[in-house]
Structures are given as C-alpha cells and as structure tokens.
Simulated assay, not measured.
Amino acid sequence: MSYLEKIVNSAIAKLLDEDLWVNIGEIILKIIVVLVIASIVIKIGRAAIRNIFRVRSKSPLRISERRENTLQKLLENIITYVVYFVALITILSLLTIDVKGLLAGAGIVGLAVGFGAQSLVRDIISGFFIIFEDQFSVGDYVGIGKYVGTVEEIGLRTTKIKSWTGELHILPNGRITEVTNYSIHNSLAVVDINIPYDGNIEKAEKVIEELLPNMSNKYEEIVSLPELLGVQQLGTSDIMLRVVAETKPMYHWYIARMLRKEIKLALDANGIKAPFPKLVMYSRNEDADLYNHRVHRGE
C-alpha cells in the first residue's frame, strides 16, 4: 500500500468515526445554546433598562426626557456589545481555541494597531464628551455641518441624524466640531402681513391686536403673548406688518402657519383685503399717433 493510500484511508477512517461526529454535534448544539442565551439576555437587559427609565420618569428626581432617551439608547447598545463579546469568547472556547493566548496576543497587536486607529479612538472620546456635556440628545433637532435633522441615536462612535425628508445621516463623532441645537431654547415665530397702500393701516393694526391675545389660549405651543411690532417694510405696492410669537422649541413653523390663517380670516371679516399687483398698459403706437396729429396741426 502506497503512502498516499495510507493517508486517504486514515482520513476516511476519521470521517467515519462516530465519536467525531458526536463531538461536532455537541459543539454545534452548544454554540446554538450560547447564541440563544445571548439573545435572551440582551432582550431581558433592554427591557430592564426601559423599565428603570419608565420608573424614573415618575420620580421627582428625574433628569430631562431628552437626556433619558439618550442614556437609554446608549445603555442598550453597551449591553448588546458586552453580551455578544462574552458569547464570542465562549464560542471560541468551545472550539478549543486558546482564548487566553488570543487575548494576550490581541493586546500586543491592539497596541500596534492603535496607532493606526486614531480616528476610532477620537470618535469614541468625542462621543463620550457629547453625552457627558449633553451637547445634544436623542430627539433634538440639530444642525451639524451641512446636515440638519432629528437625532435618532447617539453611540460612542457615531451619531445618526434623520432629515425631515427621511434620509438617515450617520456621522462619526470625531468629525462633529460645530453643532447648532434648535431644541433647547424656545423658538420665535415670525409672520409678515402685507396690507395695500389704499387700505386702512390703523384698522388693520387694531384688528390684529384684538386677535393676538386669544392666540395664547387657543394654541398651547405659544409661550408668551404674540406681539405686533408694527410696519416692517414699505414695498412697491403694499405695506408689511410684522407679528412675532415665542413658542416652545421647534413649534415656530406650526404657530406661524396658524397665525397667518387666523390673521387672514380676521382681516377678511373686517373688509381688509390682501394686496394684489397692478398692471399698467403702455402703448407706444398711441403716443406715435398723438405726435403725428400734433405735427399735422402745427403744434
């Protein structure tokens, strides 16, 4: 029997060994059990975190809602990472891989790779300071660079922003250098109303001033009494009046639309119409005929 035949026969004998397949089956079954347990632990952990924050929402010592949403998302992500890391180590141990030696080697390799992964380290450090300093939170409407939208998630490495048209922007935390947060302080709704020159400006101002006090009671998003500032601009065919109202954060667009509607209805009810462009027709042929007529008469 040749050497090659001995190797083939030995391999076939090992493959036909029942103990080998029993061991492989046991390992696969154990791996499945580990993954199932990891999935259950993650679900239980996330549910526990949600319940903890739900209880804190009824406590007088609670932090702001936006802050709680951010911390809840972050803790859920951390639990997921930790559980999957432990599951990975357990699976490697089941495959008879020396985990201790692997971790020791990974420490040395990680030190070398760390110099080339400075951006990753910068992202994590920046993410920590974003959360620690409460620069913005989940649910805030922010502007970061050229992206403007609602913060969907803040992680240790990336931040997810959803624009109002539905696009989801994923930004590395290390590249976030300037942030405009529109959700912290109250907003200001600015409404301009155009009145024609032949309209009664004093009457229009009186109608608007009588209407504005009712707006605070009608719309709870208005924080303070809306104010008529007066004449803002003298246009070519109309006069612009400006009304401002302080609103809750990010409600200025909604309140501005409602104010325009209410003011328009009030002005119409008092006979004050909106301005419209006036068109003046000028005919050069008529001027030429008039000139020829005068020349013919000797004028």
Rank of each mutant, 00 (worst) to 15 (best):
M1C: 06
L4I: 14
L4F: 13
V8N: 07
V8H: 08
I12T: 10
A13I: 00
L16M: 10
D17V: 05
L20M: 10
W21T: 00
I28G: 08
K30E: 13
I32H: 10
V33H: 09
I37D: 03
V41F: 12
V41N: 05
K43R: 13
G45E: 03
R54T: 01
V55K: 14
V55A: 12
L61Q: 10
I63C: 04
E68V: 02
N69P: 00
I78K: 01
V82D: 06
V82K: 06
V83A: 06
V83C: 05
Y84I: 15
T90Y: 09
I91H: 04
L92V: 08
L92D: 06
L95Y: 04
T96V: 11
I97A: 08
L102C: 09
G107T: 09
A112S: 10
V113K: 08
F115K: 08
A117Q: 13
A117R: 12
A117V: 07
Q118D: 07
R122I: 07
I125A: 09
I125T: 09
F129K: 06
D134M: 07
D134C: 07
S137N: 15
S137L: 02
V138Q: 01
I144P: 01
Y147C: 07
V151H: 02
I154Q: 03
L156Q: 05
L156C: 03
R157A: 15
K160Q: 11
K160W: 09
K162H: 04
S163P: 02
W164F: 09
T165P: 00
G166T: 04
L171S: 05
P172H: 05
N173D: 05
V179R: 03
T180N: 14
S183L: 03
I184L: 13
H185L: 11
H185S: 14
L188C: 00
L188T: 12
D192H: 12
D192S: 11
I193N: 00
I195N: 02
I195P: 02
D198N: 15
A204W: 03
E205Q: 15
V207M: 02
I208P: 01
E210L: 10
L211N: 06
M215T: 13
K218F: 08
E220R: 14
V231I: 15
Q233P: 00
L234M: 15
G235P: 04
S237A: 13
D238S: 15
D238G: 07
I239M: 12
R242I: 06
V243D: 02
V244L: 06
P249S: 03
H252I: 03
W253C: 00
W253L: 13
R257V: 08
L259P: 01
L267A: 04
A269W: 02
I272A: 02
A274P: 04
A274H: 05
A274W: 04
F276R: 14
P277M: 10
P277F: 11
P277Q: 10
L279S: 09
E286S: 12
E286Y: 11
D287N: 09
D287L: 13
Y291F: 14
H293W: 11
H296A: 15
H296L: 15
E299V: 13
E299K: 11
